[in-house]
Design a binder for these strands. Structure first.
Lengths: 137, 137
DNA sequence: ATGGGTGCAAATCCTTTGCATCTGC
DNA sequence: GCAGATGCAAAGGATTTGCACCCAT
């Protein structure tokens, strides 16, 4: 494992940090190509794996979508829209009581190291468009 | 949407209920084939989609694995092993205070309908095998 | 000259789709 | 005979891999 990022890796990370959304590998590839036009998609995947391994970004697997990547690596929670499927970050620190987490971890038999809360419901946009047809996959 | 399951669909559901693990489509296909040897994998996928739509089973997307299906549809929480990646059900009802959920939902702007807690840590098996090499993907 | 990183193309894997057939009514 | 369900094979899409090449050491 190395500590320094080369130019391509730095470009990938910059793109991800500049965007505040959860990008797919293809979106990242296209954005990076504007700066470094010779990069290939395979390199983007290789770089993303390295960045995940080194803790710079996290993978978000969700529904039947392809993998999205998140440069926001601090612990945080997510909300998932039951209508359009979008996955949103919850912008506040949510405090689940430590005792609740511990009891659950013990019940599952795991040695707790982190956690994530996922909420399901209508996102603001789908809530507004209630009357209109659902726009899902 | 219909209410009755035909023979193939019933066979798929039986297999899933008999297994207490989270099966992949291929595993389900192989198990169903023991009873109904002429079924094809495409039908298994079609049936699984119907079962999801009708609420008999749920999809579990997780890491870079293929989709797994769960016949355990009541709300429950999960624990994910940071070493081997296994996703386990938490066998107790975990009570996250309603106020915490509401505050988080409001922060995200969603109309809360359900939630799931995900814990991360070493599973019992990986905890036992601590000294040994990690056995990941 | 050596090793790591690269682009390209081909391969791989899971899942979906097209289509002709079969089934029950 | 019709509508829905089926098996098979082919297509599709995201991701990975093989390989030759290039560059800095």
């Amino acid at each position: 494992m190395k500590e320094t990022l080369n130019e391509n890796a730095q470009a990938v990370l910059n793109v991800m940090r500049a965007s505040h959304s959860h990008m797919t590998a293809t979106e990242i590839y296209e954005a990076v190509r504007e700066k470094r036009s010779r990069i290939g998609i395979a390199s983007v995947y290789r770089i993303l794996h390295n960045l995940v391994e080194q803790g710079y970004v996290k993978e978000l697997w969700h529904a039947d979508e392809c993998c999205r990547y998140d440069a926001h690596v601090e612990r945080h929670d997510h909300a998932i829209c039951t209508v359009c499927g979008v996955l949103l970050d919850i912008p506040i620190e949510v405090k689940v009581p430590q005792g609740v987490l511990q009891a659950a971890a013990e019940a599952a038999g795991i040695e707790l190291s982190s956690h994530e809360l996922r909420l399901y419901g209508r996102c603001p946009l789908c809530n507004t468009n209630k009357e209109q047809t659902a726009q899902i996959k």
